[in-house]
Simulated assay, not measured.
Amino acid sequence: MEKHDGPDPARVRIDDPWYDALASGWGELDGTGAPAPVVPPARGRQEDRGTRAADIYLEVQRSAAFQEVRSRYRRFVIPAAAVFLTWYVAYVVTATTAPAFMARPVAGAVNVAMVAGLGQFLTTFLLTWAYARHARLRRDRAALDLRWDTQELTRAVAGGER
């Protein structure tokens, strides 16, 4: 029989919330040749810790820093989405209601519809660039600070076990 130098398997705890308890024991033997039983994690301490962690997340969500990040996000996204949607609907409505206008040549075989259609692609790329720039300059640092603070608080609740 082999000696196992690691911690006692009955005392090992899995704190990872993504851990799939049903997957443990696949192909593992318990020393007698039989498959190892699947042991679900203890519920008592994890539920208490989860409740305290949930309180931390609610506290962070209510904080002024979090509200400022959300406010900056909304101040950019809502107007940008409204402008882009208006531009897209105007293009579609004009294409269906004024085909003669859309067929008007601009330069050679290029007509108004082609220019407006390419403008749709261009504005998509410009909006993506503007969103990334806005996020980088106005929100990312504050969001990372919030994430760092939240992780520190949840580690303190867990007792530094991770």
Rank of each mutant, 00 (worst) to 15 (best):
E2D: 06
K3P: 11
D5Q: 07
G6V: 01
G6N: 06
D8F: 00
I14W: 15
D15W: 12
D16Q: 12
D16M: 07
D16R: 07
A23F: 15
W26Y: 14
G27W: 05
G27S: 05
L29Y: 11
G31R: 06
G31N: 03
G33Y: 04
A36L: 13
P37M: 05
V38C: 10
V39R: 15
G44A: 04
D48I: 09
D48R: 13
R49W: 12
G50L: 07
T51L: 10
T51H: 11
A54L: 08
V60Q: 13
V60E: 11
V60C: 07
Q61P: 15
A65V: 07
R70S: 12
R72V: 02
Y73T: 07
R74T: 11
V77R: 03
A80G: 00
V83I: 06
V83Y: 01
F84D: 02
L85D: 04
L85Q: 01
L85W: 01
W87P: 02
V89R: 01
A90T: 08
Y91F: 04
V92H: 04
V93Y: 03
T94I: 03
A95H: 02
A95T: 05
T96K: 03
F101N: 04
P105E: 00
P105N: 02
V106L: 00
A107T: 11
A109V: 12
V112C: 00
V115P: 09
A116P: 03
L118T: 10
G119K: 04
Q120C: 08
L122N: 09
L122A: 12
T123M: 11
F125C: 10
F125R: 15
F125G: 09
L126P: 08
L126Q: 09
L126V: 12
W129G: 12
W129V: 12
Y131N: 05
Y131P: 06
R133K: 14
R133M: 12
R133E: 09
A135N: 15
R136M: 08
L137C: 10
R139N: 14
D140C: 11
D140T: 10
A143Y: 10
R147Y: 06
Q151M: 09
Q151K: 13
T154A: 00
R155W: 07
R155Q: 08
G159V: 00
G159D: 01
G159C: 00
G159I: 00
G160K: 05
G160Y: 06
E161S: 11
